[in-house]
Simulated assay, not measured.
Amino acid sequence: MIYKFRIISSESDDFIREVAIDSQSTFLDLNNFILEELGYEKSQVTSFFITDRNWHKETEITLIDMTEGQNPEIKVMDKTKLGELITEKKQRLLFVFDQFAERSLFLELFAMEDKVIEKPVCTRRQGKPPLQFDENAIEKLDPDNLDPDELMNNDDSDTFDNGDSNLNPFDEEDWY
């Protein structure tokens, strides 16, 4: 099964990436592909979080098991396949690429196809990704003022090329 994810950022209004990856790939495969696609260094600790519809963190998938195997509930990227935790269209994830400033990318599964692909591919590139290392990121992102739902339903008509002021970047009908 091919999973197609749309990725956006709260820091870069015009940034969108769409990636296709096999459901039997691991979260580490997706992690490495995102880092490579965005030109980010792989030396940083990252995490994925499965979230609810309101972007509240539910299940963490870590790069490294800091409990050294003591907690069997810990999900580790290299041992967890995407299809184990992602099972339905519109499922949402956070990809935390800057643990210290809690900077994340927002992902949503927008399509599932009954096909197989050997390696992940980027099917859409729009805008520049946020900088991986941004000295001002902590100042820019005040957690009390960050509302992912507002971000997902951004009403700035100049944010997206088609001028639809009610465009939700994760509403696939608007993209096809």
Rank of each mutant, 00 (worst) to 15 (best):
G69H: 05
G69I: 00
P72F: 04
I74P: 07
V76T: 04
V76Y: 07
M77I: 05
K79A: 04
T80S: 00
T80N: 03
L82T: 02
L82A: 00
L82C: 09
G83V: 08
G83D: 12
E84L: 06
E84Y: 02
E84Q: 14
L85Y: 06
K89N: 11
K90W: 04
K90C: 07
Q91C: 04
Q91G: 02
R92H: 03
R92W: 00
L93K: 03
L93Q: 01
L93F: 02
L94I: 00
F95M: 05
F95E: 03
V96T: 05
F97Y: 15
F97I: 05
F97N: 05
F97C: 02
Q99A: 14
Q99G: 09
E102M: 10
E102T: 08
E102W: 04
R103F: 01
S104A: 13
L105T: 06
L107Q: 07
L107W: 01
E108Q: 11
E108H: 06
E108I: 02
E108G: 01
L109G: 00
M112R: 11
E113C: 01
E113G: 05
D114T: 07
D114H: 02
E118R: 10
K119D: 06
P120F: 11
P120A: 13
P120G: 11
C122S: 12
R124Q: 14
R124H: 14
Q126E: 15
Q126V: 11
G127P: 07
G127N: 12
K128S: 14
P129Q: 03
P129C: 11
P130I: 09
L131K: 06
L131E: 15
F133G: 06
D134T: 08
I138Y: 04
K140A: 15
K140Q: 15
D142F: 11
D142E: 09
D142G: 05
P143F: 02
D144A: 07
D144Y: 03
N145H: 15
L146Q: 01
D147P: 01
E150V: 10
L151C: 13
L151D: 12
N153S: 07
N154C: 15
D155G: 12
D155H: 08
D156I: 09
S157N: 10
S157C: 12
T159K: 13
F160V: 06
F160G: 00
D161L: 02
D161M: 14
N162D: 15
N162E: 09
G163S: 06
G163V: 13
D164C: 14
N166G: 14
N166F: 12
N166M: 13
L167R: 08
